[in-house]
């Protein structure tokens, strides 16, 4: 896996691709066509990977990896990485041999 970007990496990428705002969530790229905006709440980021807000935990995937509240609005940096996980994770059920 490529190293996660530092703030300077993000700044460089911002300059290089400022024409198209994009972020990465769980290592996948999303752009304005997917709903990325310059200001987004945690729930907006969770929605990109189809996790309902009541079940989502959103974190920065660079820097301090702090948690972003579902209703917390942040200024999105171009190329910024996020992790979205579920609060509910169960083993699930075996239905067949794989």
């Amino acid at each position: 896996m490529a190293k996660q970007p530092s703030d300077s990496d993000i700044s460089t990428e911002t300059a290089a691709s400022s024409e198209r705002l994009h972020i990465f969530v769980n290592r996948r790229k999303f752009d304005e066509g997917d709903g990325v905006r310059h200001r987004m709440a945690g729930r907006d980021i969770a929605r990109l990977v189809d996790v309902p807000p009541e079940n989502a935990v959103v974190r920065l995937d660079s820097g301090d990896k702090r948690e972003i509240g579902i209703d917390e609005e942040i200024s999105v940096k171009n190329g910024q990485h996020f992790l979205v996980t579920r609060r509910v994770v169960e083993a699930g059920n075996v239905t067949r041999a794989n």
């Binding site: 579920r86 509910v88 994770v89 169960e90 083993a91 699930g92 059920n93 075996v94 239905t95």
Partner: peptide
């Protein structure tokens, strides 16, 4: 591991 995210795993 017995992890089945698309079948009851969340």
């Amino acid at each position: 591991a017995s992890y089945h995210p698309h079948n009851g795993g969340g």
